[in-house]
Nucleic acid binder design. Structure first.
Lengths: 229, 229
DNA sequence: TGTACATCAGTGAACGCGCGTTCACTGATGTAC
DNA sequence: TGTACATCAGTGAACGCGCGTTCACTGATGTAC
C-alpha cells in the first residue's frame, strides 16, 4: 500500500458511510473495515472521529466553494443589468455542484446528502467548523440574496432563507428515500439534478412572495378561522 | 406516589428531553432521573425505549389529529365556494396546533420540535408507526392539497409537498436556535406562532409557482450559465 | 375475621455489548557521522 | 560502506465507559374460601 493511500481510503469509506447512515450511526469500526485499514489508523491520521468528519467535509467543500466563487464572479462580471435574480443565485449553487470536479458518479448525490446531514444532525463541532471555514462564501451568498430581494424586511428575509435551507437540506438528505417512494408509486425515475431543478422555482417563488404586512398577535393566527364549535 | 402517576412522569420527562436533545442523544438514565423514577420503570411500563418514543408521539398526535379533522370538517362544510385554498389548508395545520389542548406554555414549541425531529432523525420504527397510525388524516391532507393545486402534475406536486415538509420540519426542529440567533443579531423576539405565520405565504407561493415545463437533461441545468473560463 | 394465594407497581444491581480512544510495539526508511 | 539513532506509518490488543435490557426480589393490595 503506497504511503498514506490509507488517508484517502479512510476518507472514501467514511464519506460513503456517513452519507448512507449519518454520523452517530457510523462507527469507526465500520469505516476502517470498509476501508481495509486498522481501527487505530483513524485516530493516528486524524486524531479523533470528529476531526475525521470535518476532514470529509473539507475535502469536497473546498473545491465546491472555489467553483461557486468563480461562478459568482462570472455572473457579476456580465455586462448590462447589475443585480442578480434569486433564480440566478440559486442556479449558481446547483450549477457549481454539478460542474465541480467529481470523484465518481455518486459524487453529487453524496455531496447533497452530506450537506443535508450537516444541517440536520446535531453535530455542534461541525457547524462551528463550517461557519468558521466557509464564512466568506456564505456572506457573499447572503449579500447577493439581499440585493435580489430589496422588497423584504431583514427579518422576513432571515426567516425565508431558513425556509429555503430547510427545504433543500431536508429534501437532499432524504433524496434517496424520496426518489425510491416515487419510483415505487409511479414508476418515475428522478435524478438528483432534476430535484434541484424542481427546487429552484419553488424556492424562488417562496422567496419573492408578498412580504408579511402585519404580524399577528400570538393568539390570532393567519389561518382562515371558521366559527369553531 | 399515586398509582401509575409514574407513567405520566416518564412521558413528561421524555417529551422534554427528546425535544431538547433528540432521541439517540437522550438516554433512559437521563429520562428516569429527571422523572424521579427507577431506571427499570421505562422497560416495565413501556417495554423498550422505542415503544416509549412512540408513546410520546401518540400522546400529542392523537388529540392534534382529532382537532385537525374537526377543522377540515368545518372548512369543508362552509356554504359557497367548494375547494379550499393552499393557505386555508396550511392555516388549518397551524391553527389546530395552536388551538389543541396544551399541557403547558412550552407545549406548541415542543410539539413542533418533535414533529421536526421525527422527520429529521433516523428512526425507522417511528416513521413506520406514524405512517400506520395517522394514515387517514395524512391522506385527507394530501387529497385537499391535490384539489387546491389542480394545475400541478402529480410528480411536481409530490416534490413540492416534500419541499414544504422539509422547510417546516427543519425550521421547527431548529426553531429555538434560529430564534436565538435572530434575537442576538437584531434584538427581535419571535414566537413560534409568528414563524408559522411567516411560513404560510412562503410555502403557499412555492406550491403555486409555475409548473416545471421542461425537465433539463442531466448535463444541462436550469442555471443561467455564463461563458465560463 | 382470618388465612393463603395471586396480582401488580416498582426496585437495585448486574449483564453483555459496542463504542471511541490509548498504548506499547513493529518494521521500514531516512539521516548523521 | 557501516553503524547508531530518529522518524514515521501502521498494528493488535486492551481500556474504560455508557448504553438498553434483564432478573430476582419487595411490599402493597385484591380475591377466594
Amino acid at each position: 500500500m503506497a504511503q498514506s493511500d490509507t488517508v484517502d481510503r479512510i476518507l472514501d469509506a467514511a464519506e460513503e458511510l456517513f452519507a448512507d447512515r449519518g454520523f452517530a450511526e457510523t462507527s469507526l469500526r465500520m469505516i476502517t473495515s470498509k476501508a481495509g485499514v486498522n481501527l487505530a489508523a483513524v485516530n493516528y491520521h486524524f486524531g479523533s472521529k470528529n476531526a475525521l468528519i470535518q476532514s470529509v467535509f473539507a475535502r469536497f467543500l473546498t473545491p465546491y466553494s472555489a467553483t461557486l466563487e468563480a461562478e459568482f464572479d462570472d455572473l457579476e462580471a456580465r455586462p448590462g443589468d447589475r443585480v442578480l435574480t434569486v433564480e440566478e443565485i440559486l442556479g449558481a449553487l446547483t450549477g457549481s455542484a454539478v460542474r465541480m470536479p467529481q470523484r465518481n458518479e455518486r459524487g453529487i448525490s453524496i455531496f447533497m446528502r452530506l450537506l443535508g446531514l450537516a444541517y440536520t444532525q446535531s453535530q455542534e463541532h461541525l457547524r462551528e467548523y463550517l461557519e468558521e471555514e466557509y464564512r466568506d462564501i456564505f456572506h457573499r451568498f447572503m449579500g447577493l440574496l439581499k440585493q435580489a430581494t430589496p422588497q423584504l424586511s431583514a427579518v422576513d428575509r432571515y426567516w425565508r432563507i431558513q425556509f429555503m435551507l430547510g427545504a433543500t437540506a431536508f429534501t437532499m438528505s432524504s433524496s434517496d428515500a424520496l426518489r425510491g417512494i416515487l419510483q415505487t408509486k409511479t414508476g418515475v425515475e428522478t435524478s438528483i439534478q432534476e430535484i434541484a431543478a424542481r427546487l429552484i422555482p419553488f424556492l424562488s417563488a417562496g422567496m419573492q412572495a408578498p412580504d408579511l404586512m402585519m404580524v399577528p398577535r400570538p393568539e390570532a393566527t393567519a389561518s382562515g378561522q371558521p366559527a369553531a364549535g
